[in-house]
Write a protein that binds this DNA or RNA. Sequence first.
DNA 1: ATCGCAGTTTATAATGATTCTAAAAAAGTG
DNA 2: CACTTTTTTAGAATCATTATAAACTGCGAT
Lengths: 132, 132
Amino acid sequence: MKYVEKLRNSGLRPTKQRLQICEVLFNTEKTFHFTINELEQKIKKQANNKISLATVYNTVHAFEKKGYLKQIPINSSETYFDTNVTDHHHFYDLKEEKLIDLDNSDVGPINILKKINGKKIKSVEVLVKLED
Amino acid sequence: MKYVEKLRNSGLRPTKQRLQICEVLFNTEKTFHFTINELEQKIKKQANNKISLATVYNTVHAFEKKGYLKQIPINSSETYFDTNVTDHHHFYDLKEEKLIDLDNSDVGPINILKKINGKKIKSVEVLVKLED
DNA sequence: ATCGCAGTTTATAATGATTCTAAAAAAGTG
DNA sequence: CACTTTTTTAGAATCATTATAAACTGCGAT
């Protein structure tokens, strides 16, 4: 399994459940956005077995902490995650309630001129809301 | 009362509760960020009486719909609102869990090059996460 | 002013995403 | 295999938010 090493290297035991979730999340051509519930559905369908909801939460949070996933800052009742962990941004289609990736190259360079004493910039995320 | 007209003009009856919330939200030198619970506390203290939590929610949502408040897109257990409805951005201090305003002039001009068919850009919001 | 009604407020219940719990299962180690 | 630690799990608990439905209020019409 190609994810065994990845997990081990980050100090996570390569359990059956984590490997299965890796398959669903990372064994794809394209990156994608998901909520915990969408992920649970996808696991059920793709792997044809059920992983406890608590485990899905645990795993997603563990992966996020290790930098394999990113949370997308958006106001929605459910939290959105992104398998694309490179620096990039998002459109949010208000009507369809859908997220669309926006590559760094689709956004001019962003220069934050204000500095906060003793703080470093960890990330810069742009959310572009779309309407009809 | 200076808020009676404002409310009437937007089709909201100027009720005692709404006027009181207007005082707390808008009768200040500076704009500010708040959660519903922080607002409830502020009302209790400033006006020395209690408005039902449901009414605070209703009112904040009504004001947001009318454009008197903005939701701040951020992943937090509570929803943050902003009395500053002009185009601007935010720092988010991850450690302190505090929001800090970032004027448009503190951010270089942002140019969204990608276009989505049939959609208009409603807003462009930048969230800059800070760490120590 | 009073009436009547749509719009509001309210306390409380319901919802729903997320986290907690503690017992069972699995993984790593020697 | 025996033992320890980590992980999984079902179900309970939590907590922000929304729904409910009864009481109340603002306001125009009479």
